[in-house]
Design a protein around this nucleic acid. Structure first.
Lengths: 146, 146
DNA sequence: TCATTCCTTGACGTGAACGTAAACGGGAGA
DNA sequence: TCTCCCGTTTACGTTCACGTCAAGGAATGA
């Protein structure tokens, strides 16, 4: 069950443009098989692509993503290389954890704003909006300690 | 105790360049007081700036950050505007939560890679590295279940 | 007074990540 | 055979977030 994909299939499935896929190929992030000129993407290409897209969503540059992928697919290298990879991975993890903290703080701030908006709207409701707004669930004020 | 800051102070404190601060001003994200030509940043400018920088770290564009800040500092507007702001905030929260999931998945993957590296290194240790690597704490394999 | 330092306003440059034609090939169906 | 449709390469264009001069003003210390 070694499925293959055309470029069009992948673009639709993962909501990217073909230009983007070719760009990633130019950057060395993908290297699909060629049937003549046409690209044939295999399961592992698709897997790599989802990793790339997720990396992009969490704010990595293509260069960073490429580095990670390169380190990832280099289990055949010596102990020195592997130790280096390990170090890089740990660094990345630290960066991501920091980013999570930033996100938590942003979320806390936004939830606070939502709560404030709710309070204001409750106070000043002059029956402008007879429909009850969906009661906020989980938007309690939690001081962003630390 | 209404402290003020010169541009240089802020750049050092928050590790940004003056060009960046002026750029944010051009983009309408900051509007420090002017003493003659010179900029004088107040506490609220500093606060806005930290919000901007955090927004940047979590991947927002300057346009998105500006929108949020604009909605934020608009409690004086009518109920309609406030409801709109609330909606936007809730949307942003959803985006951030999604991003957190992406980060969690990336972290899980990286931790897995670290563990695999550790295992490989333990297996193949030919006394190439007599020093024991710091034992991984918290890098257990946790299936990235949904 | 002079040099240094910090600040200012332009304004052009840059790197990343694609977008957007333009021009061509190849197979499939009418 | 003709026309779509999908795919390809080449190459210039664009947006964002600043970087990097250039040229000048104001204050400060020697």
């Amino acid at each position: 069950m070694t499925r293959t994909f055309t470029i069009r299939q992948l673009t639709k499935e993962l909501s990217v443009t073909s230009r983007t896929l070719r760009h990633y190929e130019d950057e060395g992030l993908l290297s699909p098989e060629r049937r003549g000129q046409a690209r044939i993407y295999h399961g592992r290409d698709r897997a790599r692509l989802t990793l790339i897209l997720r990396g992009r969503r969490v704010g990595f540059s293509l260069a960073e993503i490429r580095e990670i992928l390169d380190l990832y697919n280099a289990e055949d290298q010596g102990a020195a290389q592997l130790e280096y990879s390990r170090k890089k991975f740990v660094e990345r993890i630290a960066i991501l954890e920091k980013q999570k903290k930033d996100i938590d703080e942003s979320v806390a701030e936004l939830k606070l704003a939502v709560t404030r908006a709710d309070n204001w709207l409750d106070e000043h409701k002059q029956l402008t909006h007879p429909q009850p707004r969906p009661k906020m669930s989980g938007y309690s004020v939690m001081p962003a300690g630390e």
